[in-house]
């Protein structure tokens, strides 16, 4: 059975998907990753999909699930490296991946995660205020 490796780097978990996902593999990744977040108390999950050429509604849902499951375990998810054709297809399909943070590449994703960790409670209060005044 194929398995997608999950690497730990400090407070973050790194996943690089190098093969085209099929349903079973995506489901396994979902549960492995959520278990890892719990086991390692990771604060962030970085998923690199630069080698993935197809994301259909099922895969999109899995990515969204990973993000929301990690969120309630207090970890943020950033998806990096999406191919432009995949972005076009996802939107046309009707799957805007709401609630999933994205970045263009690994480096930008990493700094996004770090900035999200740095912004502790006071900042969160601030952004909450912003949305209220709006």
């Amino acid at each position: 059975m194929d398995k997608i490796p999950i690497l730990r780097m400090g407070a973050f978990l790194l996943v690089t998907i190098q093969v085209d996902l099929y349903d079973r593999l995506a489901l396994n990744l979902e549960s492995d990753l959520v278990n890892m977040v719990n086991k390692t108390s990771a604060k962030g999950v970085l998923i690199d999909i630069s080698a993935v050429s197809i994301v259909d509604s099922f895969m999109g849902r899995i990515i969204g699930n990973i993000a929301s499951m990690s969120k309630i375990l207090d970890a943020e998810t950033v998806v990096v490296g999406m191919q432009p054709a995949v972005a076009i297809t996802l939107i046309e399909l009707g799957l805007p991946l709401k609630g999933v943070h994205t970045a263009l590449d690994m480096e930008k994703g990493m700094s996004l995660l770090k900035s999200m960790m740095d912004s502790d409670d006071p900042d969160e209060q601030e952004t909450a205020d912003d949305t209220i005044t709006e």
């Binding site: 050429s53 994301v55 099922f58 054709a85 076009i88 297809t89």
Partner: peptide, 17 residues
């Protein structure tokens, strides 16, 4: 083209599922 290929294969992926 690449974008149309992606659309087609994604569509195929949905239907085959």
């Amino acid at each position: 083209g690449l974008v149309n290929q992606t659309r087609l294969i994604t569509a195929a992926s949905e239907l085959v599922r």
